[in-house]
Design a protein around this nucleic acid. Structure first.
Lengths: 211, 211
DNA sequence: TAGATTGTTAATCGATTAACAATC
DNA sequence: TAGATTGTTAATCGATTAACAATC
């Protein structure tokens, strides 16, 4: 094909982007296992995804494999890290220091996967000043200052539902561009701000349909 | 159309089932707001989903609306509760009493949404016997007995990655049919067992692509 | 009645899969 | 070389959207 979109590079489907972190996680696991090479078939079997789909997805970004031998696990992982921009560490703030906020602030799983929590906030005077693992709970009134000064782009909301939209508005106004929301409520944000949701009940209800 | 699948009722696409909990959550929020009626258009605007899609999705299960007036929020919510089988309370066990396991055991958001945690397990002798909110941490060796005696069908895994597959195998052997896995690893389970995953890093990495 | 909104059909759009030449 | 596996094309499959008759 010789025609090309004038508007710029070809658009990568969102659903493809969404699978890259899954591929990356599997590749990093294989690295821990000491493996060197893999194939679209093996990766697909591990993940329950067809080999063709994995090859198709990866081909959107470049040619990372070798015919006959497959993919270097380390090389492919490195490529995906770059594509997802997680070959750097994104500093995050957590808003809401209840059970969930405290647990995610202390979560060990961010290390080596591109993220680090730098500060934990709450608006409850009873909680402000208390320690949660290595964190001191800060007054939520300092939210904007912290975000602006540290150039924070990523935040997690773990407040009650009633506060979540208000917190989101403040995060966005201070420059946050990606929000992971643990409050069970849909957020309205500008188009250029990414939002993802974690609500365990949504997942559970999806499963009980089949029981 | 007069033909009918001999194999049984028409198959509902998984992606449609996956949206029902989202609809339900929005409807329950509207109920809290004291609303009585809604429309596919309003619901769609709240959720960022097209009105046509919502009507199409719902039409897979029956006719729940009225031309000209829309949907009774309470009635539609009730119908979806039934479809998803969350018009009952599913008792759950949580395996792993670290930060995450303790937080989800105490999570207030399960109430009124069809789920209740009844027991929390860990294999660490240091933790067994300790209290976590209203729960006492039980020895993971009692897992199978508890599940069989209480007829538990739903479980959450919040162990380290290395233990997750082993725990899943034990859950399945004891009769669990739905697993929500917080460990960042893909699980292999029989076809008749549902698995859903919660890994915040997957969501975060999906967003950083666009930053 | 006039206006609004459903449920459904057909058309469109997009994603997945199958197949295979290229090549390591 | 023979075997294996990629990257890519074309075909298939499935999901979304647009449109509208039905009707509250």
């Amino acid at each position: 094909m010789e025609s090309e979109q004038v508007t710029g590079a070809k658009e990568i489907p969102d659903i493809v982007v969404g699978r890259l972190p899954i591929y990356l996680r599997a590749l990093q696991r294989m690295m821990e296992e000491g493996r060197r090479l893999t194939s679209s078939q093996e990766l697909g079997e591990r993940l329950g995804i067809s080999a063709a789909q994995i090859r198709k997805d990866l081909s959107q970004f470049g040619e990372f494999g070798k015919q006959g031998t497959g993919y270097s696990i380390e090389f492919l992982a490195e490529q995906i890290l770059h594509i997802l921009q997680v070959n750097q560490v994104w500093e995050m703030v957590v808003v809401g220091a209840g059970d969930i906020g405290s647990a995610i602030a202390r979560y060990q799983g961010f290390a080596n996967r591109g993220f680090r929590v730098i500060k934990l906030f709450d608006s409850d005077p009873q909680k402000i000043g208390q320690e949660v693992g290595p964190f001191t709970i800060h007054n939520a009134s300092e939210l904007e200052d912290t975000i602006r000064q540290a150039g924070i782009k990523v935040a997690m909301i773990a407040t009650p539902s009633a506060s979540a939209q208000g917190v989101a508005d403040r995060l966005v106004s201070a420059g946050v561009k990606a929000i992971l929301n643990y409050a069970p409520i849909s957020l309205n944000v500008p188009e250029d701000v990414q939002v993802q949701y974690i609500d365990p009940v949504i997942h559970l209800q999806r499963m009980t349909y089949y029981l």
